[in-house]
Design a protein around this nucleic acid. Structure first.
Lengths: 161, 161
DNA sequence: GCGTCGGTACTCGGATAACGCGTGTCCGAGTTGGCTCGG
DNA sequence: CCGAGCCAACTCGGACACGCGTTATCCGAGTACCGACGC
């Protein structure tokens, strides 16, 4: 049960975008260079965020990505599910169907006690992620490191070359 | 972020063992036949449970697996971590190290806000799983389907052939 | 001088390979039970 | 009839292939800017 590497990249990229003006787009190449990541692959992850409605993209010169809505309207869960997909980590394949008294017409995700317990844990995980927004993260970072905003903008500027 | 298929097998197998007398061992072949699973592969998962101290194994005729301790002392988290491993789903690779002001001597799992948020969610998940024991599951099943114990034992007997 | 048109460079977007891990299988080591043979 | 020793069958345990998903990369479609040309 390993989470995709792209999740970490997407999270940090989204937080980085909060330091920029909402109307200025950042290219995938710059976002990748910021952390020395492979640009083409990061681009793939950003596309997932676009499909999920978290980012908007613009083609051509002066194009790039920008947040589709305010940072306090983007939860960590939104980003994670955009990259990882919506389905639960635990897959109830309904093996009870093959056991004694098993029936084909029963949805065991709603009747198997183990499946329900796993689902409940998954729900707790999701609830925790949904409780934090990108804005919350940015605010905490800003409080602990007051010069983050300027430092980040400066680095993006230096990558303009 | 897909959980191993073996987790579901291990969970159901452990619950099934609660219906049997604690001193009688069940072979991997029988446990597999119960749900029509591949025996050799299930055996692999059971070995992981043995290494984790959840089951004990006996070789030779009349051998097999049995619970290493009382069902109320085995949490779902124990089983899941035995199969999946102990590490978190989210891997903090410390990409901040490559960013502005990044240092190699900092443990970013304890300083990166995003990493901590993800860790907190993981903790909520673990806490939920640790709150339910195999005995809890068995008790609920027994209450909803009072004939489960006898039905399970009967099926194991019929698989003796 | 001003507007329009074409070219060019730049960006995203999806299609395309390579690697790694989960999945599945097999055979050997060890042990217990039963059978046989001798007393 | 009883006991000891040997054989055989059964079980776990780890070593060995296969397939799919993640990881990584490349090239084409589309667009905005910039310059040139004509009026």
């Amino acid at each position: 049960m390993r989470m995709n590497e792209g999740v970490e990249w997407a999270l940090h990229s989204c937080v980085n975008m909060t330091w920029l003006d909402q109307d200025e787009a950042v290219t995938a190449k710059k976002l990748a260079a910021f952390y020395e990541l492979p640009a083409a692959y990061l681009n793939k992850q950003l596309q997932s965020l676009v499909k999920a409605g978290i980012l908007t993209s613009t083609s051509g010169p002066r194009g790039g990505f920008r947040l589709a809505r305010r940072p306090d309207q983007i939860t960590l869960l939104d980003i994670v599910t955009a990259i990882e997909g919506r389905e639960d980590a635990f897959r109830c394949e309904g093996i009870l169907r093959k056991g004694p008294g098993g029936r084909d017409d029963v949805d065991y995700r709603a009747h198997c006690e183990l499946s329900m317990a796993m689902r409940q844990a998954d729900l707790a995980w999701r609830k925790s992620l949904a409780g934090k927004t990108v804005a919350d993260i940015a605010a905490t970072v800003q409080r602990k490191h007051p010069n983050t905003r300027e430092g980040t903008r400066a680095r993006f500027e230096s990558l303009r070359a």
